[in-house]
Every structure is written in structure tokens, then in C-alpha cells.
Design a protein around this nucleic acid. Structure first.
Lengths: 341, 341
DNA sequence: GTAGTATCTGTTAATGTTAACATGCTAAAG
DNA sequence: CTTTAGCATGTTAACATTAACAGATACTAC
């Protein structure tokens, strides 16, 4: 590939002049600018971002680490991040951790090697860990999404799992349900913990004693987890009358299991979901859910990160938690229970 | 951030020795290796991939350009690409074009600036264009996915739109349908063209004259396109008895429109889809579809690209088209028509 | 004993770009 | 007529790393 030097030779100027043309410096005469541009076109010159980044110490790349792009929730966040990144002249490297803390750490190191200007992370572990420490020690701007980390002073954008789960559970209790199965992700992920906390609070407030066997922690917030745990919940001696899907993938698994058991929603079993299942809510809107604006999470996260990047030298204002309130959308997947027979 | 030079000083060796430790050269004594590793750890040294790439002319990054990560079809491809990239020590920069050829061109230039080792592209235009020419002129390995480009000698991995659409249409004709609406993407995208071709062939073979007003070209393969065109098709004086959704997003729009019109599938209207609508097929498998293995497309595309990258100097074997056969899955969304009343 | 080979380490130059400074030139201001 | 300012260009060094070569040492083979 042609270099700036070759362009300079062809145009009969110094490399510095070419550099000035590339970077739109005003100290280039009309005439030389034209000559240089001509030479660039003839050679098909494409600037080398590696050399540029090496010297300017800026790459205009953001790292985005999420658990799985196959999950539309994260995909929509990614879209929000990308759209605002592009708008600001940045682009993104995308990484899937599959909720694996080790994979997450490897990716963090990789992004740091590439000298990304900042990182947006959905941590697969709610404790401070090596990966995060590494980012902070290198003074690379970091924004967390969807999940927080205990006692860590970092910007974090997420929707309120606790109150969303509380609302959903309270709604079920209001309909007369007292045996409510809940299926969430792994215990090390903050959203799973918070959603179970919200669930507990609603039951406690209603003075319903909590049957721990109704609380199911999955391995990775997956359809399989939803399916397997629903099967097992519904085959209990004293099965729940309602099931709370901890995220959209789990909910899909729940629905699959219920269908295979030939049960009817809501006649035989009530179902609620944390987060929409988009295609289903568009084609047959029957699920009662708590809905999050994931696109907004992506946009806000990117905006904050860019702000931190731009103000890296300035005295930085303290990190913030930005909590979006999810919205309860009542549809037709739950029935009111008669008084206990 | 610490540099190799600082590590060298701390360990009391030359930078070259440190470089050797980083790159696992065998010509380093046990003892110095240990000292260097100690120094690296103490300084929290993270190698600079920019400088490395600048000199080795390899970045171990692949560019992946698709139309929209919000579409699970592409997302699954992306997952396949990423998984095999990682396995081979590569990672990916992801770009969304939204089917906009101009955006596509900008992204191509950007990836070339970053000196990616290769590009996987789902072109938003079935003609050869500036972006593609630029890639080829720079001798950067390129693999196309999902969509081909006329008369271009490049590896291309896709599923057979023509025969998939043919099968689906033939199936509907076999059930007695002759007025079949089809909604696809824009006319400049090869999958849209091929799917309509397959549709035409099936009708021609059955000696059914084609009503051009039943063929709808959308703006970008979106839910909205599916919705609007279904509405308009079903409000025709002589509406179709079956609708063919040109991809999964369009199909979701089709289903939404049908639901809003309070029509029943398949009693009032039959529906088929090119590609699965995953969440729906898992929870309520009723849609008759032609199903593609998008994860495989991603894996194969990445494998081919890596092969091209590794064999860049070798005499390259000729580019190949790898065509995956989609699978017809008959479920319950179509009914047999009685003879014309 | 000498040549040859393998191991370990270092020096110098190169990668493609920009930052910082330097050098002329022209035109305006005094 | 000199000084000053602004414009247009060039020169040199720097960014962090590796390639290519060059020594130095130690061991092996004849």
C-alpha cells in the first residue's frame, strides 16, 4: 500500500505537507493541496491508522464487551453504542464473553493491547477482578452497562432490576399467586441477584413465606436454563402457579417447556418476563413483561464514555450510576387465582 | 503505559531480549526470561499492538460488514465469524451498513485504514462498486456472505435463495394457491432478486400467469416493509391467498399486519417465510419456512478468509462460491385451497 | 586443536506517521 | 526602510516495536 512518502514524492512536496493536507491544516496553498490530492487519488492512498495512532496516542476505537450478540437485548445496546460512536468518529470492536469471566479478562487485555480509547463492559462477575483493575490502572476510561460492580467507582448505566422484579412479583401476588417460580442467571451476575432481591421483597411485604426451591439460578441466562428449570419446577409435587422468566432468553425457554407439557397460558400457568421477547411481542402480544430500553442504554453508555475520553485531562466529575426505570406492561399471560380451594 | 524499553531497563537487558520473551523466542535463558517476566508484571506491561502491527504488517483483526446486528440472522453469522476468528487468534471489528451503499463504502475505507488482515462483507449492492474495487486493489483478502456480486471473482458463502424460494412457492402452489404475495428487500440486493426469481420459476412451471402487483420490493428488509406491504396486499380488490415473507424481519411484519386485520393463519391467509423466526419457532412452531444455517455461514466465511490470509503469497486457488442448501420445514401456517369456487 | 554449531544477547535500522521547531517569503504597520 | 506578523513549506526527532545482522560464549565433532 502506498505511503505518505510516496505521495509526497509524486506530488513533489515533503511528507509534512502531505500530512497537512490529510489533516486539513489551513497552512497549505490551494495549488499544492490540489497536487497532493491528485497524487493521493492516483496512488489510491489510504492513511495508516496504526502509525497515526502510535504517534497521537488515540485510536478512535471503543471496545464493547458483552456476553452474547445472539441475545437481542445486548445487540440493541450494541446498536446504540455503535450509532453514537460513528456519529463521533469512533468505531467499535465487539467481544462476546458468554458470561465467562476468564474470556472477559482475555478480551480486556486484548483491547488494551490495541490501545482502544475506552471500554464499555457488561461484567460477567459482580466483584472487582483482574480485568477491571487492569483497565483502571491503565487509566483507560470505562463505563459499565446492565450490571454493576460492588464498591467500584465507575460510571454505570443499567435498568433497575430490583424494582422491575418487585413490580412484576407484586403484580402476580395481587392476582392471588403465592407460589411463584423465578428463573434467573448465575449468582455472580448483579442483575440476577437484584431480580431475586426484588422478588423477595414483594413476597416479604405480602407476608408470604419464601420457598427457596422456587428460586432457580441458571448457568448463563439462556433458553436452555429457562427450559430445564421450568420443566423441573412444573414437575414438583407442589408446583408454582406462576413463573417469572429472568430475561428474554429464559422466558423463551419457559414458553417452550410449557408448550411441550401442553399447558395453557394463563389458564394452567401464569408467566411474566423481565424484558420483552421482541418478535413475540410484535406478532402476538400476550406476555406481561417489564420492558427495558436497551437502545437507550447503549446510547447513554457511549455518550458517557466519549465524555470521559474527551475530558481525560480535566478534573473529572465523580462517576455516576444512571438507572433507567423499566416499564411494567400488563398483557394477558397471567390469570387471577380464586381463593385457595 | 509502560513500554518495552522501561521493561528492559528494569530487567537490566536490551529491548530486543524483552521482545524475545514476549514473542516466545527459544533463544532466551531461563534466568533472564524470569527476570523479564517479573519486570513486566511489576510494571503491568501490555504490549502495544499498534507498533507491532506497524512493523509486522499484520493486525490479526478481521473486518465484518453486515447490514444490521439487530437482525438475528446476521448476528448468528457474526457469532460464527467471531468464534472461529478467536480460535485462530484474530478478532473482529463489526460494522452496520443499514443496507446503505454509501455507509458501506465509508466503512470499507475505515477498515483499510486500520489495516485489517481481511474483510467479510455482506454487500448492500449486487454490482461491483468503489468500495469493493478499493479492497481488491489493495490486495486485502475478501469474502462475501449471504449475497454475491455479478461477475466478481471472489469467495462467496451463501444459501441458495433461488431454490429456497422456488421450493416454498412450489409448496404453496401444490396446496392450490395461485395468488401468492411476495415481499422482499430492495432490488439492488442479490437475495431479493434471487428469491423473486425462484418464485417466478415455480409459478411459470405451473403455468400460472404472474401478477406483478403481488411482488413487493421493500426498502431495507425490515419489519416495517413487511407490515406495510402486507397491509397493502390484503387490501387489494383481489388479495392474495398466501404471503411469502422474504426474510425473518419481513415475516414478523407480515404476522403483525395479519393479526391487526384479525385474520387467522392458515384459515384466512397462508404464510411462508424465507428463514426462521427463531423465538417464534421455539415457542410456537407453526410457521412453514425455509431454514438457513447462518452460524455455519459465519464459520465457513471466517475459515475461508483465514485461509486466504495465510496463503496470501502462495499461488491462490480460484475463488469459490459455497452454496448452502436451505431446508424446507413444513409446519401449519398454510392451508390447502379447495378448487376455485 | 580447530572448525562448526547452537545458544544467548545486543546494536542498528526500519515501519508510517505527526510534533516541534526552523526557514523563507510576502505584506502590512510604524 | 525596518519591524512584525502570517503564511507556506521543510527538517529532524519521536512513537513502540521487530527484522536483520553481529558478537560472544560454550559445547561437539573430527
Amino acid at each position: 500500500m502506498a505511503t505518505i512518502k510516496e505521495v509526497a514524492e509524486r506530488a513533489g512536496v515533503s511528507v509534512m505537507t502531505v500530512s497537512r493536507v490529510i489533516n486539513n491544516s489551513k497552512y497549505v496553498s490551494q495549488e499544492t493541496r490540489k497536487r497532493v490530492e491528485q497524487a493521493m487519488k492516483e496512488l489510491g492512498y489510504v492513511p495508516n491508522a496504526l502509525a497515526h495512532g502510535l504517534i497521537t496516542k488515540k485510536t478512535h476505537v471503543l471496545g464493547l464487551i458483552i456476553s452474547d450478540i445472539t441475545n437481542p437485548f445486548f445487540t440493541t445496546i450494541a446498536r446504540g453504542v455503535e450509532d453514537t460512536a460513528i456519529k463521533n468518529g469512533f468505531n467499535i470492536i465487539l467481544c462476546n464473553t458468554d458470561e465467562d469471566p476468564e474470556k472477559e479478562e482475555r478480551y480486556i487485555e486484548l483491547l488494551l493491547r490495541k490501545r482502544v480509547d475506552g471500554i464499555i463492559l457488561s461484567p460477567s462477575n459482580c466483584n472487582k477482578n483482574n480485568g477491571i483493575s487492569l483497565i483502571l490502572s491503565k487509566n483507560v476510561p470505562l463505563v459499565l452497562i446492565d450490571r454493576c460492580i460492588k464498591g467500584l467507582e465507575v460510571d454505570c448505566i443499567y435498568s433497575d432490576s430490583f424494582s422491575g422484579a418487585y413490580e412484576l412479583t407484586k403484580y402476580l401476588i395481587g392476582l392471588g399467586h403465592s407460589r411463584i417460580g423465578i428463573i434467573v442467571g448465575p449468582k455472580r451476575i448483579s442483575t440476577a441477584i437484584e431480580r431475586v432481591k426484588g422478588y423477595r421483597k414483594a413476597l416479604n411485604e405480602a407476608h408470604i413465606s419464601i420457598d427457596e426451591s422456587l428460586i432457580r439460578w441458571g448457568e448463563k441466562y439462556s433458553r436452555e436454563d429457562g427450559y430445564i428449570n421450568t420443566m423441573s419446577l412444573l414437575k414438583m409435587d407442589n408446583p408454582p402457579t406462576a413463573i417469572f422468566g429472568g430475561n428474554r432468553l429464559i422466558t423463551v425457554g419457559v414458553l417452550k417447556a410449557i408448550r411441550e407439557l401442553r399447558l395453557k397460558i394463563p389458564e394452567d400457568i401464569s408467566v411474566v418476563s423481565f424484558d420483552e421477547v421482541e418478535d413475540i411481542s410484535v406478532t402476538t402480544p400476550f406476555l406481561t413483561v417489564v420492558s427495558q430500553n436497551s437502545y437507550a442504554i447503549g446510547i447513554i453508555a457511549a455518550e458517557w464514555l466519549l465524555k470521559r475520553i474527551k475530558g481525560k485531562d480535566k478534573p473529572l466529575d465523580p462517576p455516576q450510576n444512571i438507572v433507567l426505570q423499566p416499564e411494567l406492561i400488563i398483557r394477558e399471560s397471567c390469570r387471577a387465582l380464586e381463593e385457595v380451594r
